[in-house]
Structures are given as structure tokens and as C-alpha cells.
Design a protein around this nucleic acid. Sequence first.
DNA 1: CGCCGAAGTTAACGTTCGCTAACCCGACTG
DNA 2: CAGTCGGGTTAGCGAACGTTAACTTCGGCG
Lengths: 201, 201
Amino acid sequence: MTTRTDAPTRREQILKEAARLFAERGFHGVGVDEIGAAVGISGPGLYRHFPGKDAMLAELLVGISERLLAGGQLRVSEDAACQDGSPHALLDALIEGHIDFALDDRPLITLHDRELDRLRDADRKRVRQLQRQYVEVWVEVVRELYPDLPEHEARAAVHAVFGLLNSTPHLGRPDAQPDRADTAALLHRLARGAFEAAARP
Amino acid sequence: MTTRTDAPTRREQILKEAARLFAERGFHGVGVDEIGAAVGISGPGLYRHFPGKDAMLAELLVGISERLLAGGQLRVSEDAACQDGSPHALLDALIEGHIDFALDDRPLITLHDRELDRLRDADRKRVRQLQRQYVEVWVEVVRELYPDLPEHEARAAVHAVFGLLNSTPHLGRPDAQPDRADTAALLHRLARGAFEAAARP
DNA sequence: CGCCGAAGTTAACGTTCGCTAACCCGACTG
DNA sequence: CAGTCGGGTTAGCGAACGTTAACTTCGGCG
């Protein structure tokens, strides 16, 4: 785990605020003036950092998808390298990683499946391909763990569990939440239980 | 079950097409001219049926929420009236009903948690209250079935299972789907498995 | 010191959007 | 047969939006 200590660049500030605003009110529901105001500059000043509003959304969505996929692939390779690597532990690691992401980057999770269609064709294809690969990582692990589960059911179950894990934005404001660890543990149990039930006849 | 045989009114046509378009491209991403074109009339003709674009979204969201809640309450009362009513069977009935809704009205499911913030204050409060009541119906049944599950965990689990069941829009185009009954059965198993796992330590 | 480029500003343009106004037409109905 | 009214049309208004242009400010550097 690498931790940043230096201050965020202006670009990063803008991306963070844009993500929050897009998640709250939708891509078309937010004006560039609002995004600018959120970082203390005004409207057109954003164009010193991004070629346009679309580019902000594109960078956000591509970034999310890349990070999710990279995280998943990393855990798979770690499991393969470990001598006692088991599909059971690996699925737990995937679930844990996805939960971390869902709890830490709620606005991005929201955008991820909500504003995809607002992208230019090239970017949308890119994001969709990354998402597909990420799903495939999960499907392979699930099928190794539950060999009797047909592939299309495994894929549907993975999508459904993503919906389950990504439900965190609906869980009330993050400050009023009981405890992050408790929430994570509950979500983990729910996801595991769902997969187990999928494999049962 | 009451089935309609008469032709849909123009109002209903408009609502159906508006739901589809809002779900595809977002509330702000669809113009009134497009909605009109989708039902064969042009733009401002819509104002003979609705006072404004907002009103269409409001009627859609309030309608969904009311139907979901009414369906849930109906199943609870049916279970109470039945002599062999059990919380086990009741939870299954709730799950089944929600799955029917998710599979039959995909665009509405999408709108339901995506465009809520685009409503006028009064309508948004109304929808939120209905949603809260619907969640509460589920929470009560879940807690009766799993008395050891703390209330806040039951509520979080219900939200998460909603996310799971509402994942159907991500399951590829409906025509390419294997079989509706199979999908429903799988989703049902996943939801049951999640609740069971929530109750396990 | 003089210059330059990064990072802002305000003004303004062209487009799009929701909505209203004014008009039209055809089906009932007294 | 005239009147009315539901349901549609087109034209156009005012506001908001994304973007560009022109100008300013300022820190770093030869």
C-alpha cells in the first residue's frame, strides 16, 4: 500500500469535486461554473486543466475501471504466488477489495454504472472493456470455487453481487454510519452467502 | 391479478416512453421533443397531458414507490390471513414480488434510485417516505425470521439485497437473456442466501 | 530587470432547452 | 348545423449551458 502525503494537485481537486457533484446531481445536472466554484475558481478556469466537461467524466470513469481491474488482477496474482493460495481465500480477497473501494469512493461507485452512456464512443468502449475484464476475473474465481455453477449463472451472480456491494451509497450518510469495519464485515458475509446459495441447487 | 386488455391511454404511452428515455440517458439528458417523438407527437404537445417535464418524472417515481409498497403490504396481509403463514414463506413472497417488478419494469427500477434528486421538494419527500416504509416492511419480516440480527444490520442487509435484486438492468439486453424463470430463480436463491449469511455470526 | 508561461479573470457567443402563445382541426353534441 | 373542446401543430421567447476570446496576474529564471 502506497500512501500519499503531498498536497493534491489542482487537477485532482477538480476531479474529486466533479465526481461528487456528478454523483449527486448527474452529469447533465451540473454546470461547469459549479465545478469551478467547488474548487474556488470560476467556470472557464477549468479549461486550463481539462479540454472540456466530457473529459473530466471520461478520466473519472476510465480511472475507476482501471483501478478496479488492476486491484482484482493484483489479488489473483498474489494468490497464485502464495503457496497456500486457495480459491476460497482469493474470492474473499476480491470481495474485500471491492468493499474497500465501495466504502472509500462512494461517488465514483455511483458514477461507474450511472453515467457511462454520457461518454464519447471511444471512451465508452474502453470503460466497457475494462468492466468486462473485471467481471471475467471474478467469474473465473467463482467457477473455480463452484465448478457445478454454469457460466452464465456465475456471471449473473457476479453482477448481482456487484449490485449488492455497490449499495453503500444508499446506506445513509457516511458520518452517521455505525462503524466502517462492521459495515464491511456485514457486506462481506452477504456476498459470500449469495455466492454459496448460487451454487446450491 | 387484474389484467388490462384495453389499449393504453396516451398519458400511459408517454409515461412508458419517458421512463425508458430517462433510464437510458438521464432526466436532464432527454428533451421534451424526444419524448414527444417517441409517442408520435411533437414536443409541446406533451403539455396537453402533463404540466411539465418534472411532473412526468414525479408521477413515475411516486407511482413506482406506491406500487412497491402496496405490493409488499399486500403480501404481508395475505401471509397474516393465511393459517399457515410463516415468516419464511413471507420473505420468499416479498423477494418474489420484488423480482417480478425488477424484471418487468427495468427502466423504472433504474429511475427509482437514480433520478430521485431531480424532484421538487414535496415529491421527493413523498417518494422517500414511501421507500422508507417499504424498507421497513422488509426489515420487520427479516427480524421476525432472524431475531438475533440487530436492527441496523437488518436494515443494511435489506438495502444491500435491493441492490442485488435491482442489478437486472446490468444483465445484458432482455432479449438475449436465457430465461426469465431461470433468472428469477437465481436471483431468489442469491437473496435468500444473503439474508441467511447475514444472520450467521 | 525583463520576459514568459501557467493559471486565473470577465465578457460574450452560439446552441439547446423547457415552456408559452397562437392557431388549427375533427369529433361529439344540443 | 353551429358550437365547443380535446388534442394536436408551429413559432418563438428567455434562460442556462459549454466553450472561446481577450485580458490580467504573478512566480521563476536567464
